[in-house]
Simulated assay, not measured.
Amino acid sequence: MAGRGLPTGVGMTALYVVLERRVENARTDRLFHDPFAARFLTALRGAPSMAATAAFSNVSGFLRGYIPLRTWFYDTCALEAARTTCRQVVLLGGGLDTRAFRLQWPEGTRVFDVDSPAMLALQADVVASAHPTCYRSPVAVEDLSGLRTALHSAGFNPDEPTAWVLEGLLSRLSEAENDEVMAEITGLSASGSRLVADHFNHAIRRNPRFCVAEQLLTVLGPIWKSAKDDVIAWLATYGWNAQVMSPDRPAATAARRLPPVLDRHLVDPGRVWFVRAAITRP
């Protein structure tokens, strides 16, 4: 396995997510099985910078437990969509996740793994000896403007229902980019398509607890660029029927405790949104 340099900018947040998933995978009561998380850390040459290491440690103190819960929520929603209406799944900007390999997809599922060439190259190193549990198509894009063309070239069929998986993506994009990606997704979505995403409102970004975590992460580069106060209304403008929930609901289902920075009783009226949506066309 060839060694690679560490990701930079947003890629460093992907590394943080991998670290959290590795910790979760070592638990006896883990929410998911992810043998690839540790492999990513081995594949990366060297260790994070001292500043990044300190940021990871400090942020974990504020957010410990959130990433595993979010991962479990996305896994559950993506598999449910594939088992019902969607045999196409698009992982949009999934970073260092390996859902095409670690989840048990229904027979005939095709997963389009969309990310930057650098991220996909790192994934290729880690999964070189593994076999996907679906038909997997890596799709390299540098920015959102190339999404439609790249998907079509990879064999994507816009006439079939698609499950769109946007883990941690929307808040990393500007307001304009949020609209751009939803316009593209909607234009590629047949009736019966599903979407799973997460976002947060403006109030939580003003909460002192949340501001501390955000400031700790800025050493890794720009992290969050947008927020949505009414996700349901926003998605409705694109024809999506959405349901939103605070992380405390899946946390209760998973018998996990939320970190205080995300406990809605402590950060009210701040909200983190877990979003599920579907589109129905005439």
Rank of each mutant, 00 (worst) to 15 (best):
A227Y: 06
R45D: 14
A150E: 05
V219E: 12
A26V: 14
P269Q: 02
A255H: 15
R45G: 09
R209D: 10
G155S: 03
G239A: 10
I223N: 10
T237L: 13
A176P: 14
D113N: 13
P68C: 10
Y16T: 04
R148F: 06
R21W: 09
A277R: 01
G9P: 01
T218V: 03
A197D: 15
G3L: 13
S189M: 12
A26K: 11
A100H: 04
I232D: 00
Y66C: 12
S189E: 07
N157S: 09
A163F: 06
M1R: 11
A37V: 13
A38T: 12
I279D: 01
C77Y: 01
A213C: 11
G65H: 11
G5I: 08
R39N: 01
A251G: 06
N207F: 08
A82E: 11
F210K: 12
R271M: 14
T109K: 02
T149I: 08
R281T: 14
P106V: 07
L147P: 09
A55W: 12
G155V: 03
L235W: 06
L6F: 03
G9S: 12
G239T: 04
D263M: 09
P282A: 07
A163D: 02
G65V: 14
A140Y: 03
P282R: 09
L120M: 01
V127Y: 09
K228N: 04
T253Q: 13
A233Q: 09
M50G: 02
E167M: 10
N241P: 01
A183E: 04
G5D: 14
G270M: 07
P208M: 05
R99D: 00
A82I: 10
E180C: 03
G221L: 09
D229Q: 07
V139G: 06
V139K: 03
L69N: 08
P117K: 04
M12G: 01
R4T: 09
A37K: 07
E167D: 10
V165C: 05
V59A: 12
R205Y: 02
A81Q: 13
D230Q: 13
L220N: 04
A236M: 00
G65N: 15
S153D: 13
